[in-house]
Simulated scan of single mutants.
Amino acid sequence: MRAALAVFAEGVRGEGPVVDVGCGPGHVTAHLRGLGVDAFGVDLSPGMVEVARREYPGVRFEVGSMTDLRLGDASVAGLLAWWSLIHIPDDEVPTVFAHFRRVLRPGGPVQLGFHVGDTSRLKTEGYGGHPMAVYVHRRRPERVASWLRDAGFEIEAQWLCEPDERVPQAFLFARNAS
């Protein structure tokens, strides 16, 4: 996983602000900043943003939704979405990717991380036993890549991690084709 972040950071360092969409508690955003990236985080959960701000006080975190991303057109040099797209229903993914393309500068990279599979399930318990009610959608990399192409992205690479595990993971690297 750190290797995927290092590749992403190399492509955006010094190019301007980078958004970590669905940043959760902020550790990936903070790691990117440690790699010299001007990264900030956006998450739907005010509680997660509160945790991120407390844990990483010098880093910008905002409450926001990837289905209605409130960032300016072409305002970010790169976009990262790790394990946040898994909470978006299939019929909303094209809207999310349209927002990603809109806010990303022409030629800017996007990196997605997600669970691989063909199932959706309701998750009722979070890490540490906390109650929750969110859907988790597992998807095939080919399907996610197709949605990205339809939204105007060029696929550059795909990594499949732990293919023999119960829940494999995938990374897609793409670029705004504008």
Rank of each mutant, 00 (worst) to 15 (best):
D150T: 03
G58I: 01
F173E: 10
A4E: 14
G126W: 03
F114L: 12
D43W: 01
S146C: 12
A4Y: 01
E142F: 00
I86S: 09
E156N: 05
R70I: 03
V42Q: 03
Y56R: 10
E125A: 03
A177D: 15
Q111V: 15
E15L: 14
G128Y: 09
V116E: 13
L122K: 05
V134K: 11
M1Q: 04
A6N: 09
V42L: 12
L69R: 11
V19N: 12
V18T: 09
E125V: 13
P163M: 12
P109M: 00
D91G: 01
G72D: 10
T119R: 13
G108Q: 10
A6C: 02
A98P: 11
A77V: 01
G41T: 01
E142P: 05
R101D: 09
E55A: 14
H137T: 03
A52K: 04
G26H: 03
P109N: 03
P89A: 01
A52G: 06
H137Q: 02
V12F: 14
R139V: 05
A30Q: 13
R60I: 00
E10R: 12
V76T: 05
R101A: 15
L69M: 06
L79A: 13
R13K: 15
E125S: 10
Y135P: 04
W159H: 12
H130I: 06
K123W: 14
Y135Q: 08
G22D: 12
G117P: 13
D164P: 09
G64R: 05
G152A: 06
W147C: 08
G126R: 09
G16R: 03
A133R: 15
V28M: 05
T95N: 09
G16T: 04
V167K: 12
G72A: 12
G47M: 03
H115R: 11
I88S: 01
R13Q: 13
S65L: 06
L172A: 08
H27R: 00
V93M: 03
E162G: 06
